[in-house]
Nucleic acid binder design. Structure first.
Lengths: 329, 329
DNA sequence: TTGTAGGCGTTATCAT
DNA sequence: ATGATAACGCCTACAA
């Protein structure tokens, strides 16, 4: 039999109200009674039913994280940060993966509502207008992490600045023929924007064929680089949307008997562990996803504490980490 | 204002019982009434409160996943499998990371109980006897994924067989001087057991100094391999507890001017994406973590359906994936 | 086929 | 300082 507040009350010979008071540390209870109740709680190993409490308090201390795929390297540390900061502040997190399946994000939003989540974090996703509407209709606090948003407060790095700086490094190293490998899923790409901006600032006209969109994976990077190298005109440097792509691209170059960075330079994004341990170590844009997640959870908790508060979006810093995949020419 | 079953009832001019019936697809309701209720639901955009329902039904359709660190490559795909199979069957998952912090696993078990989770999956963790007791006391179904357990049903690969086979490959390739790099956190290591068994079966006496325990990371692999190579006696082959370690070990070998696999052979474990894309590609033990997660969730759902059922533990298959980090000598 | 009412385990108000 | 009791939103006998 599962022990309820009633059982404790009987055992301690008090009313359930008193038990509730000691459980919730309401100070007005007599020291002696408190001791008796605490003893009963220990003896019966009573644990309050959070569901019942949630129903009464209209608060679940649970938040929802909606993301494409928790197994993606760019999500997983952020989730860790979210869970970590959350658990320090008495919040638990329910995970929803959408896997890009249409409608699944809407279903996730619905479930987050039905399960009475106190807040929602949307992690690293493009937000379709449908999704935005669904989230708004829920009228529960929403924070976007690792992505920009016009509608909700977000915490992210500046992808525009980051890719701008990465492109500048290439340009300063003497490169003029530069390609960019972007995710095929990116509707509008801040990375491409930064890239283009840097080239134009240097008086270089971006080559349209060198803006290539492929899956943001090892395989995608490999394929894109292979394609690039089979053309007559070949770039001397390539910017990649993440380090997996960069790694795949490097392997493709090697297969074409080109060495990185001697024959072709490559820059990645996100500083996955691999980029430090690859040979050659990959120059990349690094930032702290874990901190991004923590900051997002903090914003959400603040927002949940005061739903009227207008929270300011945050841009967290990134760094250009120079390793061995870029060479001056 | 948030709309409740009462509001729908008024709008449709029926009782809340009838609304409940159409929401839950209880067939006895009159077609015409059903239509009217459905219209009201749509009009008011009513969504049932799952917390209230859970309280009544004593079932939350939520399960807890307790793991060291969701951000670990060996956990993350399994979590995806769990969430995926779960969401297909109307279950959501709450994540608990323990980060090896003492007491945090106990707290997670407690919270899983308080939040009335219908079941618990313990993922890839050593289960301390304290933790086992705590979980047993909860009297909710528990499944262990990616680890063995005497107490709870588990789904895992046979690490013993896998490392045995990996060691055999090395032995068959002519190696006699073989080291193993195992996680410093592993209390008792099935990997070491399989390794030892294979050597002994081949009449080779394992060298104690070559069973080295370090953190199961790139850094750990790098450090362990460096240490090994600075001794007078040096192995010709090394088994690693995961592919990150293997990658680190390979970089350490390169730094000592040894080439893999020409001068020294390396085998990894888990088939992380990196092992395919590293140069050289890493020979490793592969298996499907995603499937492990799915299978675990399936077992749990079955168990929750019939708590009396004794579920059989499962061993899922693995494969020795031969790539380019092992050479015949 | 539909409605009434009690109860799921808490918290909190109002008496005492 | 303590206790009765009415919610919280829903499901489900039981009655009609």
């Amino acid at each position: 039999m599962v022990v309820k507040i009633n059982d404790v009350a009987k055992e301690a010979m008090v009313s359930i109200a008193t038990v509730s008071r000691v459980v919730n540390n309401i100070p007005i209870v007599n020291e002696e009674t408190r001791l008796r109740v605490e003893a009963a709680i220990r003896k019966l190993n009573y644990k309050p039913n959070a569901i019942a409490r949630s129903l009464k308090l209209q608060k679940t201390h649970t938040i929802a994280v909606i993301t494409y795929d928790i197994a993606k390297l760019s999500s997983t540390s952020a989730v860790r940060g979210i869970e970590d900061y959350g658990s320090d502040n008495n919040y638990n997190v329910i995970i929803f993966n959408t896997f890009n399946e249409p409608g699944k994000e809407l279903k996730a939003a619905d479930l987050a509502y039905q399960k009475q989540c106190d807040g929602v974090i949307v992690l690293g996703m493009d937000l379709s207008s449908e999704f935005i509407k669904a989230l708004s209709d829920l009228s529960i606090p929403v924070i976007v992490v690792s992505h920009h948003s016009d509608k909700f407060p977000f915490v992210s790095i500046s992808e525009l600045d980051a890719s701008y700086e990465a492109a500048c490094l290439l340009i300063e190293s003497g490169h003029k023929d530069i390609a960019i490998l972007e995710s095929i899923d990116a509707e509008q790409s801040l990375k491409c924007d930064g890239f283009t901006k840097a080239l134009e600032a240097a008086g270089i006209q971006p080559t349209q064929d060198w803006i290539v969109k492929v899956p943001i994976t090892y395989e995608g990077g490999f394929e894109a680089m292979s394609r690039l190298l089979e053309e007559d005109n070949t770039p001397t440097a390539v910017l990649c949307a993440n380090d997996d792509m960069a790694c795949g691209a490097i392997r493709a170059a090697e297969q074409h008997n080109l060495r990185v960075p001697d024959d072709i330079s490559v820059i990645g994004f996100y500083d996955f562990p691999i980029s430090k341990w690859n040979n050659p170590a990959i120059t990349t844009i690094g930032f702290n996803s874990y901190e991004l997640g923590r900051a997002g959870m903090k914003m959400l908790i603040d927002l949940m504490g005061d739903p009227q508060a207008v929270s300011e979006s945050m841009t967290l810093p990134h760094t250009l980490i120079e390793r061995n995949s870029v060479k001056r020419i």
